[in-house]
Design a protein around this nucleic acid. Sequence first.
DNA 1: CGGTGCGTTGACATTTCTCAACTGTTGTGG
DNA 2: CCACAACAGTTGAGAAATGTCAACGCACCG
Lengths: 232, 232
Amino acid sequence: MDATELRPLLRELPHFRALPADLVDAIAGGCKLRTLDAGAIVFLERDPCRAFFAVRSGGVKLYRSQPDGREQVVNILHAGATFAEAALLTFGRYPVSAAATESPTELLEVGPEPLLRLFREDERLGPAMVASLSMRLVALVERVEELSTIQAGERLARWLLRQPSRMDGSTSVIELALAKKELAAHLAMTPETLSRLLRRWHEDGWIESERATVRVLRGERLVALADGAADG
Amino acid sequence: MDATELRPLLRELPHFRALPADLVDAIAGGCKLRTLDAGAIVFLERDPCRAFFAVRSGGVKLYRSQPDGREQVVNILHAGATFAEAALLTFGRYPVSAAATESPTELLEVGPEPLLRLFREDERLGPAMVASLSMRLVALVERVEELSTIQAGERLARWLLRQPSRMDGSTSVIELALAKKELAAHLAMTPETLSRLLRRWHEDGWIESERATVRVLRGERLVALADGAADG
DNA sequence: CGGTGCGTTGACATTTCTCAACTGTTGTGG
DNA sequence: CCACAACAGTTGAGAAATGTCAACGCACCG
């Protein structure tokens, strides 16, 4: 895998999309490709930060291990996403742990030198990274907003509304990118509660749920729930 | 208020701390000082972004208005904090609303031109802003982690542990920077639940709570709760 | 001194969790 | 290719935490 093959990959990343070819080539020279099995650890929180990563295929979860042994999943990333670039530029230590969730998962590993050099040499990289960090910040703010809502059904409705969906006639179809167990944790509820919510909405006749697919027959119900309507 | 008076103020800001004096002077020339009463709106979400702000005195809350009229407080800022700088560089629109919470609240308003010029001219500003954004990102991740915990007492314990405190003998004293009503909203619980938790812990004899002051007599109880121990 | 709003308390309703059992799917090894 | 193990998901019953509603005290501000 040489720089020629890596270049189109890098150009897909939000941080580098706007950069000229020669700079992308420069950074491609410092990359390594890692292939992981599900469960493999990329790094642990508090590890010294040696590189940042881009997901080429598969999936990666970022999580924090809690003192009682539970783990809190902070984010789940798929192809095209990058992570830990901020840690590389600032803290020197990773603030979260990262592990692959699929087999195989291919990661592009970018060391500090090319990135730091780039940062100095191209003044467009700074604003680009600020932009991409800002978008994550906004996404996190939305997640906080979502979690601050007290009713479990409202949290789920809000989450569903923010998922990418395709239309099939008048029903919108959402493919769950997470296992239901993980989705439940993400929404601060138990898998049982998630299961019961989906069942109740199904019995009320306005969603269909099969495997990892949710079909919303009446979107206005979802919006009403997300806006705080009691779910009767 | 001329650049000479503004300079020491700017040097206190995380983004500009490391910059040489001449650049700070340059940016100080583009600043305005605004004095607000409690409740005054600084900007509304979706407003076009004209400037970013630094808090000189008083307090500012960032919040999102929800469709049903409730408002979700995203953050509360005091002297030394900056906000909206990322929006200024990237989105063109504010993602949240901002309003003063105290009378008087003094804000330093920094327009886009000096900041953008600085960004181009000094390659240290980019990494500095990335660093400061990263710290906010980490703080938000911690808040998500906090909110993802199901037990209200555990959420409160975690929040208390992250607050600045001064030691008084073997007890740590925490001054609440928020009204209890707002703290409850911040922790996704009702004011009643917050009140009952503090009372129960007081009856159990390991905290004292008066007005906006909480004295933790036995810190290990707090840590145990934050680590997921049942609160009996 | 009277209002306005925060904070507290109690009684009650409800949601949500916990625990346990069961089902279905997936992947593995014989 | 089948049997079996492991695990996600579902369901039910009961318990516990937390929200709701209403009333009251208390501080702060005009």
